[in-house]
Amino acid sequence: MVDFLQNWVYLTGSMALIGIGLYIVLTNTNIFRIIVGLNIIDSGTNLFIVTIAWHPKSVMPIYTATNNLVVNGHVIAADPLPQSLVLTAIVIGLGTTALALAIAVKIYQKYGTLDVRKIKEEDR
């Protein structure tokens, strides 16, 4: 486990980000703050996915003049697949955030508030 947790800084950081985001989503009633919390959870998840494919000894998976990815039959590059998946996830996170913010604007125009409790009371 110790070998695997050499990147514990990033693991702990990603878990802290997810925890902070979860706390924000659970305690706030403002829709805008909930969207911010979801964004923080998104960042934590992305950091976690990149971290589990990374190792302190690994090099970036890009061929350059001085960066060899296969040395003496060992693959020393970080796993490129999770990085590409995170590239996808970042863009989709951006799109969903934009859509959520647009809907929040509409909610504010209809109810005059972004507090979910007041919106619920007005709906009764």
Binding site: V91, G95, T96, A98, L99, A102, K106
Partner: peptide
């Protein structure tokens, strides 16, 4: 997905 999100933003706003 990005196209749909952008279309949704433009539709809503």
């Amino acid at each position: 997905v990005l196209f749909l999100a952008a279309s949704g933003v433009m539709l809503v706003l």
